[in-house]
């Protein structure tokens, strides 16, 4: 999949509600007043203020001491967890699509001088997280993510592994997964990470075949992770039932996310990503 259209994303940035001061200077408006050129407001001088900040022109006119305040520009830290279990990697297209999504977030973050961390989550990934800052890395990170190989062995238990490798107190946590796990496990994950995160986005990715099963006649469906099998004689009613169940599953995920104040978005493999980022994400306040 091409990412030629990524330059459209260059001017976008990730929206974070909680504006906290970062350790490093960035391009982001911080709630703390700093040294940027953007004017904020005036305030009467109080003891302890830096006398260098007094606006002497105002003093000349009013004989009162005022301090001119400027906005401070700060970075935020963004971490992307990409589900790399077998359910994600089984379908090549779905896997490429998921990687592209992660790369796009990385691209946007780095182009905004934010700190970006990428973490594939699987049973066998033990490599340290990839952390970058600066727009100079934006191309690099895209290539890196897109070339991420599949795990060689069967990989399962996304939630447990994510919990294991969880990096706390990042400004923005983006989870990209197909959520093929019992809701309880996901709930446990949310519960465990909730006190240690600031803002979480949950991107639920589904394959085309998962939305509308194209199978016919009698099939034995094998779970890619659990290896469990189920015999299904395909029929319209069965497919209808499946769709109902899937819908329920999604609804429960949404409810769960809402409970933990996590933004939920669903994306289906093969969807127009350009449209997804520039319309859906902006509409839902993920980007601006």
């Amino acid at each position: 999949m091409s990412y030629n259209w990524f330059h459209h994303l260059a001017k976008r940035k990730l929206v974070v509600k909680t504006k906290r001061k970062g350790f490093h200077k960035g391009m982001r408006v911080s709630s703390a007043f700093g040294y940027s050129f953007d004017f904020s407001d005036y305030r009467q001088y109080e003891l302890g203020d830096d006398p260098r900040r007094i606006d002497w022109n105002v003093y000349a006119r009013t004989e009162k001491l005022y301090i001119k305040r400027f906005l401070d520009e700060q970075e935020i830290s963004v971490v992307v967890y990409l589900d790399s279990t077998t359910s994600m990697t089984l379908d090549e297209k779905k896997w490429e699509f998921a990687k592209l999504l992660a790369a796009a977030f990385g691209f946007i973050a780095l182009n905004n001088e934010d700190r970006f961390t990428f973490l594939p989550v699987g049973e066998h990934w033990n490599t340290p997280p990839l952390e970058r800052k600066g727009s100079s890395f934006s191309k690099n990170i895209v290539d890196h993510i897109c070339e991420l190989p599949k795990e060689k062995e069967n990989s399962t238990d996304f939630s447990k592994n994510m919990e294991k490798r969880f990096i706390p107190m990042r400004d923005l946590t983006i989870i990209i997964t197909d959520a093929w796990e019992p809701i309880d496990q996901i709930a446990t994950l949310f519960q465990r990470i909730a006190p240690r995160v600031k803002e979480v986005r949950f991107l639920h990715i589904l394959g085309k075949e998962e939305i509308a099963p194209p199978y016919e006649r009698d099939v034995q469906l094998v779970d890619s992770e659990q290896n469990t099998t189920v015999n299904v004689s395909m029929s319209n009613t069965v497919v209808e039932k499946y769709k109902n169940r899937l819908h329920q599953h999604i609804k429960r995920l949404e409810v769960l996310c809402r409970r933990y104040k996590i933004h939920y978005l669903q994306v289906v493999e093969g969807e127009n990503l350009h449209k997804f980022f520039l319309q859906t994400c902006i509409k839902h306040g993920w980007l601006e």
Binding site: D91, G207, Y215, V219, V222, E225, R245
Partner: peptide, 22 residues
Amino acid sequence: RKQYEKKVIPSNMIWIQVMKER
């Protein structure tokens, strides 16, 4: 005789639910 065609899918979680429900 009914022969089931083997098919590996990301997850048959929903399918199991569906068949159980059925």
